[in-house]
Simulated assay, not measured.
Amino acid sequence: MTYVIHGATGAQGAPVVATLAAAGKPVTALTRDPNAAVEGARTVAAGYGSIDALIEAYRDADGVFVHLPMVSEEDRQAYARNIVAAVREARPAHVVFSTSGAPTDIGGAAAELASGLANSGVSHAVIAPTLYLENLLMPYVIDAVRERDALPYPIRTDFPVSWASHLDIADVALALFDRHDVTGQVSVGQYPAVTGPDLAGAFGAHFGKDVVFEPITPEQMRASVAPVIGEGPAADVAGLYQAMSTLPHRSITPENSAQKLLGITPRTTGQWLSDIGL
């Protein structure tokens, strides 16, 4: 028996592997590289594109942690279908799916995966963050903080967000693997939500200087991140931020929060900056 973690060498999966290993859980790290070595885990090469490989990885698992990679929406939908098919066949004891901030109420791959898990007959929970603090480590953001005391981001100055970190997701995943009674959606993020100027203030306090929030457009963000994540994914992300700009906020609700359901309070921005040793 083991806990199977997708993307085990990536930004989202690696903290889950580390948290489970630190808790003494047996971990199987899924990667695309058959030669990868993951500390504290047994490594298995298995990609989202092979249902058979996923079935083999999931069979007899105590738990599976899954999230969809940042690729084309067409590929994400295909991966979602493969994951659901493998879960139905392999019947792991519990599945924890992180939406990575993608909405599950307006269609798309994340919605398809959440719906498929709900209809699979397998115990599961859906971790629903809003925006990741790690987004603020993109070069166009952190370099601006360091070089010109500005924090640029494609949200309005008055737009509150329940930010969460990958470390918070790992904490919640560990708890959910031990709490099969907590099912359905679990929202993860700071509450009350914080604004862009609040973020800038936390960065300023951490670095010991005044940092000003600088709202930018989704198009400016797209041009900045395309060299890092690719043109297609950058355009998709920019589209999400354009849609987000019409909303009043991206705040979680207390009723289904990790705070209420699991007693886990996500890190403040300042705590996160200290924890990652920035």
Rank of each mutant, 00 (worst) to 15 (best):
P34I: 13
G189W: 11
E219S: 14
G204K: 02
T253G: 11
A110N: 07
D275Y: 00
A200G: 02
Q12G: 00
G208Q: 06
T28E: 14
P197F: 04
Q259S: 06
S50P: 01
R267D: 01
I55R: 13
K260H: 12
L54G: 02
P152A: 03
Y132Q: 03
P26T: 05
Q259F: 01
L113G: 06
V87F: 08
T2P: 02
T217H: 04
D105W: 08
A205M: 03
L20V: 03
P266W: 04
G121V: 03
S98H: 08
I264K: 10
A45H: 04
E134T: 02
T265H: 13
T19I: 00
G201H: 13
S274T: 13
R81M: 04
T99A: 10
V4Y: 02
S187W: 09
T31A: 09
G63Y: 08
G10H: 12
T31K: 10
I142D: 00
A37D: 07
V141H: 03
E74V: 13
H249Q: 08
S123D: 14
A37F: 00
M221V: 04
A243L: 09
I142L: 13
D52E: 15
Q185I: 15
P34D: 13
E73K: 12
V96E: 08
F65Q: 00
T265D: 10
G184N: 09
I216Q: 03
H94N: 14
H180Y: 03
T99D: 10
R250H: 12
M244I: 07
Q77K: 13
V64M: 06
Q220L: 05
E39T: 15
S115H: 08
W272K: 03
V44R: 15
M244N: 01
I127W: 03
V211K: 01
Y191H: 15
L247S: 12
H124V: 04
R59H: 12
A78N: 04
P215S: 12
A93R: 15
L151V: 01
I155F: 06
D198E: 12
Q242Y: 05
V16N: 02
I106H: 12
P15Q: 05
S165Q: 04
P139C: 11
T246Y: 01
S120M: 03
P26Y: 09
A57L: 07
D198I: 04
R81K: 15
E147M: 01
V145A: 06
P215W: 08
V95I: 02
P152Y: 09
P103S: 12
S162P: 09
G101S: 11
E231Y: 08
I83G: 00
G24P: 08
R88E: 15
T195P: 08
G196T: 07
L113T: 05
G121K: 01
V172P: 01
P227W: 13
R250C: 09
I169G: 00
A22L: 04
S98N: 12
V38C: 07
R91N: 07
H124I: 05
T130I: 03
D158A: 12
I83E: 04
Y48V: 02
R59G: 00
V27E: 07
S224D: 14
Q220N: 05
A22S: 12
V212A: 13
